[in-house]
Design a protein around this nucleic acid. Structure first.
Lengths: 261, 261
DNA sequence: CGCGCGTTTGAACGGGCTCAAACCTTGTGG
DNA sequence: CCACAAGGTTTGAGCCCGTTCAAACGCGCG
């Protein structure tokens, strides 16, 4: 699988290198059948990132290649050479690092609008593993475009810069989530966070399917699988949520909120 | 104290706004009595960050204002408007976030060469508190300079971008340090990290004075003060280190290394 | 079907937290 | 200069929560 992954990556790189600056007569191409397109415009990038900036002249037609991933495929691998940043257009992924003695830690679960690969700029090597938990669609911002100084695409670097700052901020918040006293409280907070993110994406905040396993959640919150499972059971027993494997129903956000201390 | 802090910050801002682009006949000014200078050159910034890039023409004389802090003073406050990035030139600080219910988490202990304030770019508000543990000297990169596009100072933004990526990477590593199984192992690893950083700065890796309290260490590793103290005592008892309040002597790096699992 | 994996629940152990007290350092004001 | 207060550090005792080990069940897949 790693071989196939490498192949698809290099293929993308090769085709994009010469076409990234190709401008298909304004935004015309971006309005065709969306699901069948393999390109995204700078406007879509702005929209995904929720960036409130204005476009400079001559950039409206800039397009970026998309990259499809099936569930289980690897998006980025620790140690691989940096070839650009990615913005999630669709799907859920899992970002993690593995230290020398095999202990893994889940940093985040990137979803629509999140930025991937920023840790690869230092030393031109990605520093974390990212795999797709569901089928995914990413938009690639090639390294060449990012650092092409001189022309007007300073804008692109600033955009990535800004988005990175946001990712940091949210990661720090998630970090503080780890420290919350009791494991049940941490799980409750995790459910709140996920619920909020689904809500922001236009899905129901009350009923959703978890894209990640209990083990992933455990590695994110620094507890064992059993503890996560027991925390779910406890929340069910108190009538705060219902659980059917990956399907979660939140019955009382208020009770969930009161649990986080 | 908060009042005084605010005053000094605004004063610095006011004087810098018009002078940041002032160029004192090349690098002449930067070579006067170093300890008495209140300006740093772009070269010094590169050197501090260990950035391996080249300078563009017309940037060699660009200078940045320094900012002095006494121990205990606040460098950045959560919620304050973003006014630029800072690079540590001297001293040790403590970066932390405080969540709604008062629980604090120590993110890092910035020292010489580290970057501060990057989390403020998203929303133009700093998202963490940073206080000086010792007397400090910071170099300020004003927001105005960072985002002044059009001219050649794209370079400055790229530099900050690159440095941010490094900070992220190291923060993620520190994060995985939190997850290490036993508290003694975490403390051992923390000592190793600190030792390594002192070594990189030219100080002894074997004997040093901790700039932070046991409580700070605890809030960084997510354990209580008592646990940190007990871990120190255990390491002393096994002849791996000696401890005299803030003064640490590492007797065997190897034994310390073997402890981190 | 059988295998692997994710999930759930139980029982027992142990590590870290809590509470408490004592000691030491540092800074402040008389 | 000393006295005192405030806060950092160390150590002890008991308890609780999360880990570990174990077993059972369901699901998806070759």
């Amino acid at each position: 699988m790693m071989h196939a992954q490498t192949l698809s990556t290099t293929a993308t790189t090769a085709t994009t290198a010469t076409t990234a600056l190709w401008k298909p007569s304004g935004r015309h191409a971006a309005l065709k059948h969306e699901s069948d397109e393999r390109w995204s415009s700078l406007q879509e990038l702005h929209s995904l990132l929720q960036y409130e900036g204005h476009l400079q002249d001559g950039q409206e037609g800039e397009v970026f290649r998309r990259r499809r991933l099936k569930a289980g495929q690897s998006a980025l691998m620790m140690g691989q050479p940096f070839d650009g940043l990615y913005v999630v257009r669709l799907g859920t992924l899992r970002s993690s690092i593995t230290n020398a003695d095999g202990g893994m830690h889940v940093l985040s679960f990137p979803m629509k609008g999140n930025l991937l690969g920023f840790d690869g700029i230092y030393k031109y090597i990605y520093m974390s593993d990212v795999v797709a938990l569901t089928d995914c669609d990413l938009i690639r911002i090639p390294a060449a475009d990012l650092f092409a100084s001189g022309r007007g695409n300073n804008h692109l670097e600033h955009l990535a810069y800004w988005a990175s700052s946001r990712e940091i901020t949210q990661e720090q918040l998630a970090y503080s989530l780890t420290r919350s006293v009791k494991s049940e409280g941490r799980v409750a907070r995790f459910l709140q966070t996920i619920s909020q993110r689904f809500a922001d994406l236009g899905y129901s905040p009350n009923r959703f399917i978890l894209p990640m396993t209990r083990r992933d959640i455990g590695h994110h919150l620094s507890v064992t699988v059993e503890t996560v499972s027991r925390a779910f059971s406890a929340l069910v027993q108190q009538g705060i949520i219902t659980v059917d494997f990956r399907e979660i129903n939140i019955l009382s956000h208020e009770a969930l909120c009161n649990f986080e201390r």
